[in-house]
Nucleic acid binder design. Structure first.
Length: 726
DNA sequence: CCCCATGGTGTTTTT
DNA sequence: CACCATGGGG
C-alpha cells in the first residue's frame, strides 16, 4: 500500500503516528473516514493484532462502514480482510453493554438485567410518579416524557434535576422538589428490578473499570490501540471512559470537529476536544482542512454560515472543486407546495444522479410528513432515517416484551405491555399483578386468574415458555403463535402488515444465540436499519442528526424558516441557537454537487385556521448576498396554479371563531386574504391513499372532513390528505 | 373502585 | 399521532 500517494500530508501524519495520543481535527468532508481506515490498515500491516484495536464510533452504521472499507483496502493482503473482523467496534453504549454482560457478576448483577429504551423508562417514571402521588391532576406538571428527559439530561450533564431546571427550564422550577424526588425513586426502582437505561450503561461501565483494578488492567492491555470517532459529541462520562481505557501510556486517537458538535442537548461537551491535550500530555494535534467533498460554491455558503458563529472556529475549508453552480434558495408559497416542489426537484435530479445519491434533510422527524405523502403519490421510493424505528413500533415492542419478562421478571415496562392485552385489566390492575408477581403473592394471583381465563392462559404460556431453552428465535416463534390472535383484535385495520413485521422479527432473532444480546440490540442498535439499508435504489429522507457522517451528491433541505430551523425551542438560549447553527452547517456540508434550500413563505397552522406567514431562517437572512440563487415558486415549474387548486395552501375550513384567535408570534404580518376564506369542502366522493374510495358525509371545519370508507367505517381525515373526485 | 371510550391538545434532535 | 383529562358504565 502506498500511503504517501493516497493521502495528503496531514492525513499521512495521522496515519503514520501510531503511538501516543493523537487528536485529529477533521473538517467536514476532509477525508476523516479515509484517514481512520488507512490507519487501521497500517496498524494491521505493521503486525498489530486486530483484536487489540478498539474503534468506538457514534453509530454502528459508521463502524460497519469503516470496517467494510478497511476490509476492501486490505483484501490484497493475505489474511488482511479476515483479520479485520477481529477489530472490536461499535457505539459506547454497545461496547458498555458487552463488557457489563461479560462481567455481570463483577458489575453487581446476580440475575440478568434488561436495557430500557425511552418509552420503557417513561413507563417506570409514570409508575414512580403515581406511587409517590406527585403532580396528580396538576396541569402545569411536566409530562412523563419531559420528566424522563430532565432526569437523563441531569445525568448526562452530571448535575441534578433542579440544576437542569435552573439552567434551561425556568418555568418548571416550582416543581423542582417533586421532580428531584421522582428522579430518586426512578433510580431506586431500576436498581431494585435489574433495569438499566441508556445512561446507566455508561456509568456502570465506568464504575466497574474504576473499582475493579484487575478488569481495568485487562482491558487496557487488551485494547492497545484505541480510536474514537466524532469526539466532539462525547459527554463527560464518555471522555472519562476513553481515558480509563487508554490508560497511562495509551495509544489513542480521537477524531472530531468542534464545528459539528450537535449533541449538546444530551450532554455532549465540546470542551472534551479542547481538554484532550491536557488529559493526554504530549498529544499530537493534526488538522485536516482540505475538503474533498463539496464544490466551492457550496463550501462558500457553509463557511459563511459558520462565520457568524458566536464562538470562533479557526477553520476555513478549502477545496479544489471549482465546478458546480450556486446553491439554490427556493421560496415555495407554503409548506404544502414545498412538498410538491421538492418532489419535482427530486425527479429532476434523478435524471442526473441515482436516487440513493439524493437526500432530503429536515430538523425534526415530523417535518417530512407531507413530503412522504407527495412522494407516495408520485411513486418515488424513499427510505426514512431518524423517524420511528422498527423496534419502536408498538406490535414489535409487544412481542419483544414477552421475551423481556421471561428474561427478567422484574421488567415492569415489559409486564405492562403484555398485561394490556388481557381484557378487564387496565394500568391499575396490571400494576397490582406486577407487584403480586414480584412478591410471590399467590393468593392475589389465583384470585385474578380465577376471574380471567385470558390471564390464566397468559400465565400458563409464560410458565411453559420459561421451561424452554432460552433461544431467541424459538421462543419468539412461540410468542408470535400465542400473541397473533390478540394482535388481530388490537389492530383490525392493518393486521397483516404487523404480522409480517413479526415474521421479520423472528428472522432477525435467528441471528442471535443469546437472549440477552438480542434484547439489548433491539434497544441499543436497531437491527432492522441494516436490512433496510440493503434495499434497492431509494431516495433518502433523514433528520439532520441522523445524516451525520454521511454524504450525497444532491441534498435538499426543507422548512428553513424561523421556529422550525432554528427550532422554536432553541430561540430563548444563545447556546441552543449556536447548536442550531452548527446543525445547519452539518446539513449543508453533506452535499457534494448540488444543494437546494427550501424556505416556504407560509406554514400551515391550526391556530390560524389556515396559513401563517413564516420568516426565512435567521441563518439565511444574515448571509451576505450572492452565495445562493433565489427561485420563486412560479419559476421552478408552473406550479403557481396550485394556489387555487384543491391542494392550495389554504385548506378548506369553515369560517369559525378560531380565525380571530389572538395571533401567534408567527402571525405578526397580516394574513394574506382578508375576506373570509370560505372554500367549503364539497360533499361527494374522494380517495385516500390508505382507505381508498369513500363518501364525504360531513365537513367538520378546520380542514377536517368526515368520510365513510366502505370496509373501514367513518373516519375523520384532514382534507389535505384526500383527493376529490370530479 | 376501576376500565375504557372520547375529545382536546401540542409536537426536537439520539444512544 | 400520542398523550392526558374526563365521564359514563360495569
Amino acid at each position: 500500500m502506498d500511503f504517501e500517494k493516497e493521502l495528503n500530508p496531514a492525513q499521512l501524519e495521522a496515519v503514520m503516528t501510531t503511538d501516543g495520543p493523537v487528536l485529529v481535527i477533521a473538517g467536514a468532508g476532509s477525508g476523516k473516514t479515509r484517514t481512520i481506515v488507512y490507519r487501521l490498515a497500517r496498524l494491521v500491516s505493521l503486525g498489530v493484532d486486530p483484536a487489540s484495536i478498539l474503534l468506538l464510533t457514534f453509530t454502528r452504521k459508521a463502524a460497519q462502514e469503516m470496517l467494510h472499507r478497511a476490509g476492501y483496502l486490505l483484501s490484497a493482503h493475505p489474511d488482511g480482510a479476515q483479520s479485520l473482523a477481529a477489530v472490536s467496534g461499535g457505539t459506547f453504549h454497545a461496547f458498555a453493554f458487552s463488557v457489563l454482560r461479560r462481567h455481570s457478576r463483577a458489575a453487581g448483577f446476580e440475575a440478568g438485567f434488561t436495557i430500557m429504551d425511552r418509552p420503557d423508562a417513561e413507563d417506570v417514571v409514570a409508575k414512580v410518579k403515581d406511587q409517590l402521588g406527585l403532580g396528580k391532576g396538576d396541569r402545569s406538571f411536566p409530562k412523563k416524557g419531559t420528566v424522563c428527559e430532565l432526569i437523563s439530561k441531569a445525568r448526562n450533564k452530571e448535575t441534578d434535576v433542579p440544576g437542569v431546571l435552573q439552567r434551561e427550564a425556568y418555568h418548571l422550577l416550582p416543581h423542582a422538589d417533586d421532580l428531584a424526588e421522582i428522579a430518586t425513586g426512578y433510580h431506586d426502582f431500576k436498581r431494585a428490578h435489574g433495569l438499566l437505561d441508556y445512561d446507566d450503561l455508561l456509568f456502570m461501565l465506568e464504575k466497574l473499570l474504576r473499582e475493579n483494578e484487575e478488569l481495568r488492567a485487562f482491558y487496557q492491555s487488551q485494547f492497545r490501540y484505541l480510536m474514537v470517532d466524532e469526539y466532539q459529541d462525547t459527554n463527560l462520562v464518555q471522555a472519562r471512559l476513553t481515558a480509563l481505557l487508554a490508560g497511562e501510556r495509551g495509544n489513542i486517537m480521537a477524531v472530531g470537529d468542534d464545528a459539528q458538535s450537535i449533541y449538546a442537548f444530551r450532554g455532549a461537551n465540546v470542551e472534551n476536544i479542547l481538554h484532550f491535550p491536557r488529559i493526554f500530555p504530549g498529544t499530537k494535534i493534526i488538522k485536516l482542512e482540505r475538503n474533498y467533498r463539496s464544490t466551492q460554491p457550496i463550501l462558500s455558503l457553509t463557511n459563511a454560515i459558520l462565520k457568524n458563529a458566536g464562538e470562533k472556529f479557526d477553520k476555513t475549508l478549502f477545496t479544489e472543486r471549482q465546478d458546480g453552480g450556486l446553491p439554490e434558495l427556493v421560496r415555495p408559497f407554503s409548506d404544502m407546495t414545498q412538498a410538491k416542489l421538492a418532489v419535482a426537484k427530486v425527479k429532476e435530479l434523478a435524471g442526473r444522479y441515482p436516487l440513493h445519491e439524493i437526500a432530503v434533510l429536515f430538523r425534526a422527524g415530523y417535518q417530512s410528513f407531507s413530503l412522504e405523502v407527495e412522494l407516495n403519490k408520485a411513486g418515488v421510493p424513499f427510505q426514512k432515517f431518524g423517524g420511528q424505528k422498527f423496534s419502536e413500533a408498538a406490535h414489535i415492542k409487544d412481542a419483544v416484551a414477552y421475551l423481556r419478562v421471561l428474561h427478567n421478571p422484574g421488567d415492569l415496562p415489559g409486564w405492562l405491555r403484555i398485561l394490556a392485552f388481557v381484557p378487564k385489566v387496565g394500568p391499575k390492575t396490571a400494576n397490582l399483578i406486577f407487584e403480586a408477581v414480584q412478591k410471590g403473592d399467590h393468593a392475589y394471583l389465583d384470585k385474578q386468574t380465577g376471574k380471567s381465563p385470558a390471564l390464566l392462559a397468559l400465565f400458563n404460556f409464560l410458565d411453559a415458555a420459561r421451561a424452554m431453552e432460552k433461544n431467541p428465535a424459538q421462543l419468539l416463534e412461540r410468542v408470535v403463535a400465542f400473541h397473533a390472535p390478540l394482535l388481530m383484535d388490537k389492530y383490525p385495520d392493518d393486521y397483516p402488515r404487523r404480522q409480517t413485521g413479526l415474521e421479520q422479527l423472528v428472522q432477525i432473532a435467528a441471528g442471535y444465540h443469546s437472549l440477552e444480546a438480542f434484547l439489548a440490540d433491539m434497544v441499543i442498535e436497531d437491527p432492522e436499519q441494516d436490512r433496510k439499508a440493503a434495499k434497492e435504489d431509494h431516495l433518502v429522507l433523514s433528520t439532520v442528526h441522523s445524516s451525520k457522517g454521511l454524504e450525497w451528491s444532491a441534498v435538499l433541505l426543507i422548512d428553513l424558516v424561523d421556529e422550525r430551523f432554528p427550532s422554536r425551542h432553541a430561540l430563548s438560549r444563545a447556546e441552543d441557537m449556536e447548536e442550531e447553527r452548527r446543525l445547519l452547517y452539518v446539513a449543508c456540508t453533506r452535499a457534494r454537487d448540488h444543494l437546494s434550500l427550501f424556505a416556504p413563505e407560509t406554514l400551515y397552522s391550526r391556530q390560524n385556521g389556515g396559513c401563517a406567514t413564516a420568516m426565512q431562517s435567521v441563518f439565511l437572512r444574515e448571509l451576505p448576498p450572492g452565495l445562493s440563487r433565489e427561485l420563486r415558486e412560479s419559476i421552478a415549474g408552473g406550479l403557481s396554479a396550485a394556489r387555487s387548486g384543491p391542494d392550495s395552501c389554504f385548506p378548506s375550513f369553515a369560517a369559525s371563531g378560531r380565525a380571530n384567535a389572538s395571533p401567534g408570534p408567527l402571525a405578526a404580518a397580516p394574513q394574506p386574504p382578508s375576506a373570509p376564506r370560505t372554500a367549503p369542502q364539497k360533499l361527494g366522493y374522494c380517495t385516500h391513499k390508505v382507505f381508498g374510495r369513500g363518501k364525504i358525509v360531513a365537513d367538520l371545519g378546520g380542514g377536517k372532513v368526515k368520510i365513510n370508507f366502505p370496509g373501514f367505517g367513518l373516519k375523520v381525515i384532514l382534507s389535505d390528505y384526500i383527493q376529490m373526485e370530479e
